[in-house]
């Protein structure tokens, strides 16, 4: 009698079949990327040009000018001297410890990724809020995007576009975009029904409702989504450095392989500093613009 049966051992697929499937899929995808890779890459050309230009701008501008501009932006957004002062100190320390260039590279890619996420995520979120059908399609996709290990979707991106800035940006955006989409949808759906009804009752058109009522009232929630997106983009920087994104992630990666503890720590701290700055500034900005909404949540 056979010692193995389907009760003791899982009735697996034949190894040969499995290999065939893998090979087949891989070959198809490779074929696809070989034929369309160039076309797709050229589609991303404007993005690449912008990325390069923006990074160069940050790298070639004198350090004091960069700090001045950043601090001006921070102050405009938050109206807080304390926060602005904190930003100056952090940047001074970063520069003093020799991480200026990498920090600029990371800042440039984070800025681009965040803007991309916002410009793509908010419309998708609006679409989800408008139709339950769209929501039921998009939600599982977002679930996959957030739970799939980042390394897994790095593979097809790299196969398609190779190593470099653009695949890095794509990977970061895939990883970081779900919060903006989810919270835009949520924010719009949470808008007080009576207020929206009032707009409709006074004859507002769908676009007047969207721009005049839904988006402004959903803004606090959307801002929370943007904030999370920035944080996730920063977290992704280290992983993205594996596919050739330059910046603070690369030294961290190098430190892991070579066991340089201090170097890893310093660069890690620089990422943390950037994260805190982005976080505080976006939150302060949100709070400041939404102050008058204060008592209305119970309305």
């Amino acid at each position: 009698m056979a010692t193995e049966s389907w009760l003791t051992k899982f009735p697996e697929m034949e190894r040969a079949d499995l290999v065939a499937i893998r090979k087949g899929l891989d070959a198809t995808y490779r074929e696809f990327s070989r034929t369309y890779g160039d076309v797709i890459e050229s589609l991303f050309n404007p993005l690449l040009k912008f990325l390069v230009w923006f990074e160069k701008l940050l790298l070639t501008s004198p350090w004091w000018l960069v700090i001045a501009v950043v601090v001006a932006l921070v102050y405009m957004a938050s109206r807080s001297w304390k926060l602005s002062f904190g930003v100056i100190v952090s940047f001074m320390l970063i520069g003093y410890f020799g991480m200026w260039d990498n920090t600029m590279r990371t800042m440039s890619i984070i800025t681009v990724c965040t803007l991309l996420s916002i410009f793509m995520g908010i419309p998708v979120g609006i679409m989800m809020a408008r139709s339950d059908r769209a929501r039921s399609v998009v939600t599982p996709i977002l679930d996959i995007m957030q739970t799939m290990p980042a390394f897994v979707y790095l593979i097809p991106v790299v196969m398609l576009l190779g190593i470099g800035k653009v695949p890095g940006v794509i990977a970061v955006v895939i990883y970081a975009i779900p919060p903006v989409i989810r919270l835009t949808n949520l924010g719009i759906r949470l808008v007080d029904k009576e207020v929206l009804e009032a707009a409709t009752a006074y004859g507002a058109s769908p676009s007047q409702r969207l721009w005049g009522v839904q988006l402004p009232l959903a803004m606090p929630t959307i801002m929370a989504g943007i904030n999370q997106t920035i944080m996730m983009a920063l977290a992704m920087v280290v992983i993205a450095s594996m596919i050739g994104v330059k910046g603070l992630g690369q030294p961290v990666l190098k430190s892991i392989t070579n066991q340089y503890f201090t170097m890893g720590l310093f660069n890690g701290l620089a990422i943390v500093a950037l994260a805190i700055i982005f976080d505080r500034v976006s939150q302060a900005y949100a709070k400041r613009t939404q102050r008058h909404l204060g008592g209305m949540q119970d309305g």
Binding site: D192, E194, V195, E197, A198, A199, T200, A201, Y202, G203, G212, V213, P216, L217, H292, L293, M296, G299
Partner: peptide, 28 residues
């Protein structure tokens, strides 16, 4: 029709929290 023939007052006021009082009154 909604703009010119009918207007509505709501139980919980239905005012827009992000607009000032005068902007709310002028909303229609």
């Amino acid at each position: 029709f909604r703009r010119h023939r009918m207007s509505m007052v709501f139980q919980h006021f239905g005012l827009m929290p992000h607009r000032t009082v005068i902007e709310n009154v002028a909303y229609g």
